[in-house]
């Protein structure tokens, strides 16, 4: 079943100069169509300004389409009466860890969403506990968010979304402001949610190494979907990725270079082990 469906989605906004005169119209999303199935782990890749964040905000009904339609769990996001249901079903985690934590104590922040939904007190506590455990932050429940590391803050934000029992979570560059350790923590937590809780994940990022775990990848460029496929399919198209100036993992790049130099190595190598194996064949054969 499709949890998210976008059809011919167009989003335009009007640029104004300082006096408020219209300077022009920018088309941030240009006829984007894509489906996400329940339980999928989807990655959306692209540069700043490629339209990926604009797309994410449509799933949560923060932005509405200029043209076309977005359905979340069969509900049209542009209809006012669906608004709160959509926001509950499609949770959202943003880039800056400091600017999305409302509570002064970790557990209070996680409880914020359920409070807004009118969940009974006893159940809020249950939800907070299970959500914090799901991201491995339960032992920090009484801490102040200001004392946590970036990765921990983002995990708290994720817990805050899980506590609303969403069907899908949209993460809009959740790792862009984190160091490598924090990035790993967050991606690990996200993968666990997808594997264990079977929550649909839409991960928006510009780090290639984070999309390896996805089962579907979309690459966006200038408001359009430029590439789509499994991570392996995407990584097989090294030249295209390079033309889009996206980062290709060193192992994939090296394999590609070796292949170009005439070695019989398959395209789309993602790990060290795969390259070692392929070179093993070359050396023996």
């Amino acid at each position: 079943m499709e949890i998210i469906e976008a059809k011919d989605l167009v989003f335009e906004y009007i640029r104004r100069d300082e006096e408020g005169n219209v300077e022009g119209i920018t088309c941030a999303l240009d006829h984007v169509s894509l489906d996400v199935k329940q339980g999928d782990f989807v990655a959306i890749l692209g540069h700043n300004g490629s339209g990926k964040s604009t797309f994410a905000k449509h799933i949560n009904a923060i932005l509405y389409p200029t043209e076309g339609t977005v359905w979340v769990d069969g509900k049209d996001t542009s209809r006012e009466e669906n608004l709160w249901e959509i926001r509950q079903e499609a949770g959202m985690v943003f880039q800056n860890p400091d600017n999305q934590i409302i509570g002064q104590v970790v557990e209070e922040d996680v409880g914020f969403g359920p409070e807004n939904l009118g969940v009974p007190t006893k159940e809020i506590w249950e939800r907070v506990e299970e959500s914090l455990k799901a991201v491995g932050m339960y032992e920090f429940r009484k801490h102040s968010p200001n004392k946590l590391s970036g990765g921990q803050k983002q995990r708290v934000s994720i817990a805050g979304v899980i506590a609303m029992h969403p069907k899908c979570i949209v993460l809009d560059e959740p790792t862009a402001m984190l160091d490598p350790n924090g990035r790993k923590e967050v991606i690990r937590a996200v993968r666990a949610l997808n594997d264990v809780e079977e929550i649909t994940i839409i991960l928006i990022t510009h780090y290639m190494e984070e999309i390896i775990y996805a089962n579907k990848v979309f690459v966006m460029e200038r408001g359009k979907i430029a590439m789509e496929g499994t991570p392996r399919e995407i990584f097989s198209r090294v030249e295209e990725l390079k033309a889009l100036r996206l980062d290709v993992p060193q192992v994939t790049l090296l394999s590609h270079e070796l292949r170009k130099s005439g070695l019989a190595i398959p395209e789309g190598i993602l790990t060290c082990e795969e390259l070692v194996e392929a070179l093993g064949h070359v050396a023996r054969g």
Partner: peptide, 20 residues
């Protein structure tokens, strides 16, 4: 200590181990 060498280092180490 939570840092990593470039992936190339790992690739070369793995190749060395595999006998190349």
């Amino acid at each position: 200590v939570g840092l990593a060498a470039p992936q190339v280092t790992y690739i070369m180490q793995a190749l060395r181990k595999s006998g190349l």
